[in-house]
Computed example of a mutant assay.
Amino acid sequence: MIGIGFGPSNLALAIAVEEHNAQVAPSAALRVTFLERQERFGWHRGMLLDGATMQMSYLKDLVTLRNQASDFSFVSYLHGQDRLVDFINHKTMFPLRHEFHDYLEWAAGRLDHLVEYGSEVVDLRPVTLGGEIAFIDVVSRRGGGPERTEVRRARNVVIAAGLEPRTPDGIGLTERVWHNHDLLDRVGAMPSTPRGRFLVVGAGQSAAEVTEYLHSNFPRAEVHTVFARYGFSPADDSSFANQIFDPTAVDDFFHAPDKVRAMLLDYHRGTNCSVV
């Protein structure tokens, strides 16, 4: 198996593979490699804002819902950092995003032997036997040069390449037009000219966090938000609506007809990142 990308999704898969292989005979072990375009592990580094918290319980970590005895859990991470008692005393289900990123890095560091960083997948080529696809050749490139491509053959490929930044039609990213994905890096590299006004486009969770960050760090500047609604919409984080994220809901959604999928997405839109 080859995994494309090594964010939280494929990181959780890597843990599952590692735990599976530890329990079976070597002949039954899975052979797996993950290819990651970044040079090191990182998850939304540009939005690791001070004070920003996760929107989900720490129990929805990389492993707990699948294996409660795993030593890759967030609780095991806290214990290893000598922070378990402090976290309990903090009386929260929602850790800081900084701390959860540190947890992800901690887990990824234990699986370095399964990952090749700096490897960008550029092509997938089906290999047919008897008229059916039997394997997939995964073509990757290191260092940006076409002469350094490598081909690996796998029975299974898991694509978890993450999100790509989007901008409104006709708007390109420049020195002064950014995507929030790169916020902290861009702010740090801003020209030294007066910073009198910022414009934030969007009304979701990230837009609200960016707006609050700019107000706090540039108190003399005007900060405007522009969006199609009359105001920010609060997230529906009730236990009823959040059942859409339950493990059993995955199968419901996967097997549902397209119309039902669209209906579920519309009904539960207020639970995710488009709201605050």
Rank of each mutant, 00 (worst) to 15 (best):
V24K: 11
I2A: 04
R229Y: 03
Q68T: 10
L183D: 02
Q38M: 08
R197K: 14
P168W: 02
L111Y: 05
D50S: 08
P247Q: 09
Q205R: 07
N217K: 14
P146N: 00
V127S: 12
V85K: 08
S216W: 00
R83C: 05
G3T: 03
L35R: 10
A134Y: 04
T128Q: 15
A262E: 15
R83K: 15
E105R: 11
A203C: 13
F135T: 02
L114H: 06
G3L: 01
P95Q: 05
V115A: 10
T271F: 01
R142S: 11
P165L: 00
V32M: 13
E120R: 13
S27P: 03
F135V: 00
R31S: 15
Y77G: 14
V115D: 04
G130D: 15
S140L: 01
G196V: 06
L124V: 12
D258N: 09
L35T: 09
G188Y: 01
Y213K: 09
G118W: 04
L129R: 15
D102H: 08
V24A: 09
L183F: 03
S73G: 13
E19T: 03
E147H: 06
H215P: 03
A154N: 01
S206I: 01
P247D: 08
F227W: 12
E222P: 00
R261D: 07
Q68P: 05
G172K: 05
P168Q: 03
W178F: 15
N21V: 06
S57D: 14
V250K: 06
D236M: 10
S119M: 12
G42A: 10
A208G: 14
R97M: 11
K91E: 12
R31I: 08
R45N: 06
D123I: 05
P191F: 03
C273G: 13
Q243P: 03
C273Q: 12
I159K: 04
S206E: 06
E209T: 12
P8R: 08
T149Q: 11
R153L: 01
E175W: 01
M56C: 02
W178Q: 05
V226Y: 07
L65G: 10
H255E: 13
P26M: 04
V210M: 08
V139T: 07
R166D: 04
F198G: 07
N10K: 01
A262M: 13
S206Q: 04
R261V: 11
M56R: 06
A28C: 05
L35K: 12
T128L: 14
P146L: 11
F227D: 10
L30Q: 07
S27L: 11
L104T: 02
D71N: 15
N21H: 02
T248L: 10
V151K: 00
P191N: 05
S216M: 05
L184T: 11
A207D: 09
A22D: 05
S57L: 04
Y117G: 03
H224S: 13
G170W: 00
L11T: 07
V24H: 08
R155A: 02
L78G: 14
N156E: 02
F240D: 12
A108K: 06
T53I: 02
L214C: 05
F232Y: 14
I133T: 14
R125L: 14
D258R: 13
G231R: 12
S216L: 09
I88F: 12
L13Y: 01
M93L: 13
V63H: 10
V121N: 07
N180Q: 10
L49Y: 07
E120C: 11
V250S: 06
A29Q: 15
V187W: 00
A28T: 02
